[in-house]
Design a protein around this nucleic acid. Structure first.
Lengths: 145, 145
DNA sequence: GCAGTAACTATCATTTTGCAAGCGACTCGC
DNA sequence: GCGAGTCGCTTGCAAAATGATAGTTACTGC
């Protein structure tokens, strides 16, 4: 592997993928955002094996993207909520969704609408400085050291 | 699994992850963008096992994100180039990078500069309709059927 | 009690990943 | 024209992750 927790590379992409770089983790985040915050909801929605779901949930909690909260003592019931870091990751899922729609989008797909305008949301990654979409202007990679 | 090639769900995120939903694939795309287009360059840069790299490269080619091109007949030498779909995925990697920098960014990290302005690029996902960052306005999820 | 539900854990088979070695097709140096 | 070196892989096997299934704990509601 190019890096692990103890041997960090200089690439921020790698740093990001270190925390969420697998399919189930991302799908769990997506479902929590949709309001499926409880174990059984996630399990049935995703069709994931319970041991795997448990592991993914604790990995995401360790990585600081979600947190487990007990909302009922008797009976003991928990829910998983997004942290700030988890919410910050959602736009990336939207961007992946936009890509998936474009390149693997046969058939009817779910989509997000702007609650105010009712228009279909079209996620694009831009440079906050210029407002220009990434890819529309030439860039230069700077590597430290 | 919630879906496979024959049993497609309605979620565009899932559709996207179906094609690139693993760490190595994304790191390969990142490295190809950096100009590391040949097998040995990728292998040494990533520290990936050769059999795994072969598998990832053909999976990415099958998924239509890269293509293999022979640039020398004698000796036989190949390179892997991004397709349009692959280039379209790069902004997502930039967004993941920005997230990684924010939440797992200790130490010196590489970064992209705008070639014209020299400023550090700050990738943000916005709604192309409103220009507002995703997350800043309430959304509504619409599911077909 | 007894059935039912939520939230898991434990066990074991299957799949994927990773390491190390090797191989074919060449080039280069002598 | 022979040996060493490089590139782009493949093969074989071990280790780790994933997945299917069954079972467990802690309750509620009848």
């Amino acid at each position: 592997m190019s890096s692990d927790e103890n041997n960090l590379g200089t690439c921020p992409v790698d740093r990001g993928l270190m925390r969420v770089g697998d399919r189930w983790s991302m799908l769990v985040l997506r479902d929590i955002e949709r309001g499926l915050t409880r174990y059984e909801q996630l399990r049935t929605s995703l069709g994931i094996a319970p041991n795997i779901l448990s592991r993914r949930l604790s990995a995401l909690a360790d990585a600081g993207l979600i947190e487990k909260r007990r909302y009922s003592q008797r009976p003991p019931r928990d829910e998983y909520l997004l942290t700030e870091g988890g919410r910050d990751f959602l736009p990336i899922l939207m961007a992946i969704g936009a890509w998936g729609r474009k390149y693997n989008g046969a058939g009817a797909l779910s989509r997000h609408l702007d609650a105010a305008t009712g228009e279909v949301v079209r996620p694009v990654v831009v440079d906050a400085n210029t407002g220009a979409p990434i890819g529309s202007r030439p860039l230069h990679l700077e590597i430290p050291g």
